[in-house]
């Protein structure tokens, strides 16, 4: 029986391996070069997850920049597991990379890894999500507060400064949810007194929850003129809810992140606007900053990645 257990666990393990392997991504070119030139700097990029298209884009941008600048980029994916991330960063340090770009799964849990890199004398950069400790050369991230303000400004204009608005919040306690909400609400409070926020509920950055939560809010609110969601997944769910209820035409939807589905929805006129973070840009800037720093240049502590509003006009 014990042997059976072994066979079973082996079988499962094999299954797991088979499932995980291809996640590493389609363009393998930069990841495992056959014969790296001895002088070519090596940069490690530790991503929180590749399950999200956003980070896939970020990786692609980073890879393009690495190719253009002639550096080797090693990408590791933590699958949102802080322990896995710590382990893979450890591997990168052992491997002697010249610089580390970290996209933490958790801003606190990453600190020991940052400190380990510091001790090994490897410069550390963070991208998108910050670290709450250790020495960071530079943090490259979108300005979420500015993005929230940008969304508010658009929605206020689209509603003519009047109306009832629902805010679908991200996972409570995350910096993205906090910053986007802060920017949005600051702008509305200061510049758009005619708009009333009638409901503020979380849908945890999740499309299925965006659907159900907005279904419930539609029940509670007979009049809704606009929706701002902290990410596109939630707003796309909300649009499905509104369409099913026959109320999609009355509502101006604004999302955040400009994922492919959202851009498509903008094109179809279902979504009025989405704030585009520019993950490719973010990846590119991260690698460029790291390379600059390696070449001895001074780099700023914080590099804001510009945001852009995607609307029916800009999409064409």
């Amino acid at each position: 029986m014990r042997r059976h257990l072994w066979i079973a666990s082996l079988a499962l393990f094999a299954l797991l391996l088979a499932a995980c392997q291809p996640v590493a991504g389609p363009p393998p070119a930069a990841e495992q070069p056959e014969a790296p030139a001895p002088e070519k700097p090596v940069i490690g990029l530790a991503l929180s997850t590749l399950n999200n298209p956003f980070f896939v884009d970020l990786r692609d941008g980073a890879q393009e920049a690495a190719e253009a600048l002639g550096v080797e980029l090693i990408v590791v994916d933590a699958q949102d597991d802080p322990a896995a991330q710590a382990a893979s960063i450890e591997d990168l340090i052992q491997r002697g990379v010249d610089a580390l770009i970290l996209n933490p799964t958790d801003s606190d849990a990453i600190v020991p890894s940052v400190e380990a890199a510091n001790q090994a004398g490897i410069p550390v950069f963070t991208v998108d999500r910050a670290a709450n400790g250790g020495e960071i050369v530079s943090h490259i991230a979108s300005d979420n507060v500015a993005g929230g303000r940008m969304a508010a400004e658009f929605l206020c204009d689209a509603l003519g400064g009047q109306g009832k608005v629902v805010e679908l919040e991200g996972i409570p306690g995350t910096s993205a949810a906090r910053d986007r909400g802060q920017g949005f609400n600051e702008y509305m409070g200061e510049n758009c007194p005619g708009v009333e926020i009638v409901a503020r509920q979380t849908a945890n950055f999740n499309r299925a929850e965006g659907l159900t939560v907005f279904e419930n809010i539609l029940q509670a609110q007979p009049e809704i003129d606009g929706v701002f969601a902290h990410n596109d997944e939630m707003v796309l769910g909300a649009i499905q809810a509104a369409e099913a209820a026959g109320r999609a035409d009355e509502i101006v939807f604004v999302g955040f992140d400009a994922i492919d589905d959202a851009v498509q929805a903008v094109r179809e006129g279902k979504l009025a606007a989405t704030v585009a973070q520019q993950p490719r840009e973010m990846g590119r800037l991260a690698v460029e900053t790291a390379v600059k720093s390696l070449q001895g240049e001074e780099v700023p502590e914080y590099i804001p990645v510009p945001l852009a509003l995607v609307t029916a006009e800009t999409v064409k």
């Binding site: 797991l16 499932a19 392997q21 389609p26 590749l50 298209p53």
Partner: peptide, 17 residues
């Protein structure tokens, strides 16, 4: 874990809409 991994691999992490 395995089925999740296969779903992600199958779609390369992107939704099918």
């Amino acid at each position: 874990t395995a089925a999740r991994g296969m779903a992600l691999t199958y779609t390369q992490g992107r939704p099918i809409t």
